[in-house]
Amino acid sequence: MFVKPFRYERASSVTEACALLREYDGEAKVIAGGQSLLPMINLGLVDPSAVVDISRIAGLDGVAERNGSLDVGALTRHRALEGDALVARHQPLLAEAVRSVGNTRVRNRGTLGGSLAHGDPAAELPLAMTVLEAEYEVSNGNATRTIAAGEFPLTYFTTQLAEDELLTGVRVPKLPAGWGWGFHEVSRRPGDFAVVAAAAVVRCRGGAIEDARVGLAGVSERPVRLTSVEAALAGVPVSQIEDVVGEVDAIEPITDTMASAGYRRRLARVLARRVLADACQRSEGAD
């Protein structure tokens, strides 16, 4: 609450925002909804000399359909994503994931870009994007680049974004016909940070898995895809998911005040099975 005063800069364009970030040379933080940054400032965990407000930059919000994808602006608020008809139709996993974020107030203010750029390894949206193989559009005001969602987070609260870069948009492939999805998380209370979250998309036919993608959040320094599980699932009958998904080994959970590493391991197994089962059921139903 007793924060050290900082400056406030409002950017009206991406170019201006990136220029301001360069001007402050690493001492400024980007603020959009502020739902991750301001709690950290209030708790004294970060102490910027300025915040650069990008929330009023025009053209960076909303969902648009383009070919086989949805283009989602970085400033799209969680609440908008939650109620968006295109998202509901073409990528229901994303709609479900965003419903699990925080509380009503957080979803009112919080933005997609903010959540992705924050780099919280337990967050729902980076996990969803990783499993959905989304791509992020990133700009420094002069040049843009595209980064795969799975490559974007590096470690705890650290991403590939350079100090003068902004995440401006996300391209999410539509869920192809015949695929099903699953999303589950365990949090200590509704709206709390996930202890572990899991997401999957699967294509099943005739009671067997043809193709599967499954990922977890809250079990490593960043969201992880369980690639060896995915490979092992190909051709497996739905009834045998439990046999294939045993102890999940590609993770490095930690112990904190919310849960122990051991419990996170248990949840990794339980939730991976659950999201796969749900996804298979939806896939079969979609046929």
Binding site: Y8, Q35, L38, P39, N42, G102, R105, V106, N108
Partner: peptide
Amino acid sequence: CGEGVCGACTVLVDGEPVSSCIVL
């Protein structure tokens, strides 16, 4: 709390509830 968790600071901004402690 100053974290947006407890909700004691909830106000409506243009009709929508926000945590006024984590909005500038």
